[in-house]
């Protein structure tokens, strides 16, 4: 996979995600390997690795002062919506699951995102 230089689970942002899932959401990330597959697919879709996906939502000044970038986050939310809509043959629930896996990844990396109801 072009955008990934090493196994996806070795990226810091992926470790942060899994830790967040375990500790804050009470979810065992190993219980559903499709999460990682979806993130890999999203990385291919955007041409970014997981850490770059997070960084694209941030404004980093002098390498320390970090803020969420309104434009960056909005652009990423649109990318996720596009990614979710790609599978037009999938059920609405399955499409929501695709997008929500990526949202969950970003949320646990500190990027507040809300999907709205998808029922």
């Amino acid at each position: 996979m072009d955008s990934l230089k090493r196994p996806i689970e070795e990226y810091d942002s992926v470790k942060t995600w899994f830790e967040g899932l375990r500790v804050q959401s009470g979810v065992d990330p190993a219980g559903d390997p499709s999460r990682l597959k979806l993130l890999e697919e999203f990385c291919t879709f955007t041409g970014l690795d997981p850490d770059q996906v997070v960084a694209a939502c941030l404004l980093i000044k002098d390498g320390r002062e970090t803020k969420i970038s309104i434009k960056g986050r909005r652009a990423m939310a649109e990318k996720i919506a596009e990614f979710q809509a790609q599978r037009s043959d999938a059920s609405p629930g399955e499409r929501a699951r695709r997008g929500n896996a990526i949202r969950s990844f970003l949320i646990h990396n500190g990027i507040l995102l809300q999907s709205g109801m998808q029922i």
Binding site: G93, S115, M117, I119
Partner: peptide, 16 residues
């Protein structure tokens, strides 16, 4: 509580 949130996330189609 965490199980409740997981159930609500599934019901409303929200990220976990």
């Amino acid at each position: 509580r965490k199980q409740e949130i997981q159930a609500l996330a599934r019901m409303f189609g929200l990220p976990e």
